[in-house]
Amino acid sequence: MNLPQPSPPSRGPSFYEATARQRVNRLLDAQSFAEFLPPQSAHSSPHLALLDLPGALDDGVVIGSGTLGGKPVQIIAQEGQFLGGAVGEMHGAKIVGLLQRAIRDKPLAVLFLVDSGGVRLHEANAGLIALSEIMRAVLDTRAAGIPVFALIGGMCGAFGGMGIVSRLCSAILMSEQGRLALSGPEVIETVAGVEEFDSRDRALVWRVTGGKHRYLMGDCVALVEDDVEDFRQTIITLLAQWQENPPEPHALRAEQERLTQRCQQFSGMRDGLEVWAALGVPNPQQIPLLERDALVTLRQGLSL
């Protein structure tokens, strides 16, 4: 799906560099955000305390409600600067609680600002179970007719279980800086060797997991500038035309077909450059240099 172009770029504050709270406050209508379980009424993770690690009163995730273009929404924002935005028991429970509340309160949408490496290893079992509960809760929210949008553009990207959760959402919006995958490059390098994936080769990492590649492949619905205002305008546009459909066999059959075909089409490839060439991009090596608007235009010209 190709979205109408938002207003011309007026570079505002970087989404990548902002904290979770800054993102929430700038994304929603001014003064509209009301936080649930704000830091002053919370306690930090006892599991981290047991390991003598400093906690955070919000456990690395901000949740609440507000308005977007005057419409009621609920919001989740992971703080990538606290333990990599990773999911522990309390962090996960706040997200599950927000999603259950969305089913009850029926906002127009849930915005999920993902910035996370996945399971918090210090609470590994609690984190894995919480991620499973988040997966179920996202699907329950969508089945209740409330779309859930993942916004990916933070420094930790969306990895591990959060990569799966992101792809369970109604749609994903990414900036070029955003990354979306399952295993992090460091994990693959550690297990399979530097020849398999050199995690220090930043250009390669972005060609495999970055926003432009995911957009060209259709794994995210929109590529936005690294600018909170651009995320805001794009989500407003998307929301105005969004129809959340209940889970249906024919839709999952179509997705099964799409995924099966592309595994065949791109079988054996290991670099975005190969995939983009196979997609018919005339100068694949130019993709990392293209501005967002030029890339959006290029993708519209591809027969995807």
Binding site: R167, A192, F197, P247, E248, L252, E255, L259, F266, G272
Partner: peptide, 27 residues
């Protein structure tokens, strides 16, 4: 654990499997 798998969005195929199980439950 392979770069070729991540290139094609392995998290997307795993999410698809989870959605199919979810569909079965709802049915």
């Amino acid at each position: 654990l392979a770069r070729a798998q991540e290139l094609l969005c392995l998290n997307g195929s795993l999410a698809h499997l989870a959605r199919c199980v979810d569909l079965a439950r709802r049915r």
